[in-house]
Simulated scan of single mutants.
Amino acid sequence: MDAPGGSLGWPWAGAAARALLPAALGLLCVPALGAAGALLVFSGTLLIFSAARPPAALPAAGRAVLITGSDTGIGHALAKYLDNMGFIVFAGVLNKDGPGAEELRRTCSQRLSLLHFCDIVMEIVMYLKWSPCLFSSGLWGVVNNAGILGFPADGELLPMSTYRHCMDVNFFGAVEVSKTFLPLLRKSQGRLVNMSSMAGGIPLPKYAAYGASKAALSMFSGVMRQELSKWGVKVAAVHPSGIQGTSELWDKQEKDLLENLPAAVRSDYGDDYLQELKSYLVRLPAHCDADLSPVLKDVLHALLARRPHGLYTPGKGAYLPLCIFCYFPVWFYDFFISKLFSAEPVPRVLRTAEAGNGNL
């Protein structure tokens, strides 16, 4: 990506052509290549145009951006990345004395300010009131990154507290932050970026609570994108392909799951099945790409491009499951996902039934 501040941008006609050409080519190839071949053509054309994405056109210097959930993970990396690009960064953290906050203090410039998440509204309003000399455009961007994964498990096993907690943090928290700062974003004609997830765009096993909360956030982003366009505010949703969590949170969620699980349900699934869920958590980080640069670059594009996309899907192969879900029959998508999760354990009752059928 070229340095921010250039004047390049796609003309409207060029942008429309780039958006429609992959779909048009895919549809034209259906009679000759079938649905699978057309999907490959569509995906390949899309990748070509994605690689040719124009450089961000707006300058970063003097633009203030609030990022929630900056203690670890994407939010932490994004705070450092945007600080390095020249933004004035308000990094919201849960623990101002934690290792993530200390690293931001040590490695970032004086432009970065740490804000305690519980007091984030009051603190940033005070910064805007008393430090107007720090930046010329008010608050330019809000990145709703704070979120929790919960305990990945079958939806039947998850306690209602997990569903409520995921919705409180991943959806209601982002909505509250957005509503609080939208008057400032309308004034600056700035950007609202919501960090959703691939699980928020397509159904994935074991992510009923997490996926539902992220799907709500994605829908909120889409509606806000339409409604705020008249104010000049651009809204984008980012769907990274890696789903991450922390072991401390998993331990607490596991305890809640086991304590609230009805005895009959626990018997049907079996304790060995529940143990396999914990093994799945241990293996989960191996499926997450450690390279966060595609996510960071997409957020930068959403913040600075003159015509940002409404949806970003960073990560290897992140767009393919979404295409299959959108353009293929549901049964084909379910078959595709079942093959991806083919190594999943089988509940005790179903294993017993299979064994009984095999003895007939």
Rank of each mutant, 00 (worst) to 15 (best):
D2F: 06
P4I: 00
L8S: 15
G9F: 04
L20M: 14
L20H: 06
A24W: 14
G26Q: 08
C29T: 14
P31M: 13
F42T: 07
S43Y: 10
S43Q: 11
L46R: 11
L47N: 09
A52L: 15
P54I: 05
P59V: 01
A64V: 02
V65G: 02
G73K: 06
G73T: 07
G75H: 04
L82M: 05
G86W: 00
F87N: 00
V89F: 00
F90M: 10
F90P: 05
L94W: 00
N95W: 01
E102N: 13
L104D: 11
R105A: 05
T107D: 10
Q110N: 14
R111F: 00
S113H: 13
L114W: 02
I120N: 01
Y127A: 11
K129Y: 05
S131L: 05
S131N: 13
S137L: 08
G138C: 05
V142Y: 02
V142S: 03
N144S: 06
N144M: 05
I148F: 00
G155C: 06
L158P: 06
L158G: 04
T162H: 14
R164Q: 15
M167K: 07
N170K: 06
F172K: 07
A174R: 12
E176G: 10
T180V: 10
L184S: 12
L185W: 04
R186K: 15
R186F: 03
Q189K: 15
M198D: 03
A199D: 05
A199E: 03
G200Y: 03
S218C: 08
S221E: 06
V233T: 09
H239P: 04
I243D: 04
T246V: 09
T246C: 08
E254G: 08
E254F: 15
D256P: 01
L261S: 07
D268G: 07
D268I: 12
D268E: 13
G270E: 03
Y273V: 13
L274T: 10
Q275F: 04
Y280Q: 12
L281S: 07
C288R: 01
H309T: 10
G310M: 07
Y312Q: 06
G315F: 07
Y319S: 15
L322I: 14
L322Q: 15
C323D: 09
P329N: 04
V330A: 10
D334T: 09
L350H: 08
R351C: 09
T352A: 14
T352F: 10
N359W: 08
